[in-house]
């Protein structure tokens, strides 16, 4: 039998978190860059994970031309910004439903010291942006053999 933690409010809390993120502009928390955040129209969802020799970031950016995405690392801070442009030139009044947000997005993350800013690579497939940041070789943990 498997034990499951009892979390009656789990679903509601998660929903709350998602909504928070959607409307999150975090003004002021990034100092001089708050102006950039204030002008960003939407925020992509991301996964960030650490493997033994690299960090991998996945971001959902559906409908964004890879040419319009800019990945940048400076002073240990990785920033992703870009823009979703309109795909059709149709008049707005023909729209019966508009849920998609056009315009610019911006997100930034501070990376650990082990991240190698020189060797970042990024690719985009089916609206998912993948950024790989290798760790610096000399900082990878090394197991030291004990002589007996």
């Amino acid at each position: 039998m498997s034990l499951v933690r009892y979390e009656p409010w789990g679903l509601l809390n998660q929903l709350h978190g998602e909504i928070d993120r959607l409307f999150d502009t975090r003004l002021g928390s990034y100092g001089e860059d708050s102006s950039q955040l204030a002008t960003s129209d939407w925020v992509p969802a991301v996964d960030i994970r650490e493997e033994a020799d690299r960090y991998v970031i996945h971001a959902d950016v559906p409908g964004v031309d890879p040419k319009d995405i800019e990945v940048h690392m400076e002073d240990g801070v990785l920033s992703i910004k870009g823009e979703r442009k309109s795909e059709s030139k149709e008049e707005r009044e023909h729209y019966k439903r508009v849920e998609r947000v056009r315009g610019s997005f911006f997100r930034r993350f501070s990376m650990p010291d082990t991240a190698n800013a020189e060797a970042i690579s990024a690719k985009s497939k089916d609206g998912v942006l993948e950024i790989v940041i290798p760790k610096q070789e000399k900082l990878q943990p090394k197991r030291i053999q004990i002589e007996s």
């Binding site: 998660q14 998602e18 059709s88 019966k96 439903r97 998609r100």
Partner: peptide, 15 residues
């Protein structure tokens, strides 16, 4: 563990 909610935004236009 992953997020159970995602945003699948749709636009509908009528020609």
């Amino acid at each position: 563990r992953s997020s159970p909610w995602g945003l699948l935004a749709a636009d509908v236009s009528e020609g």
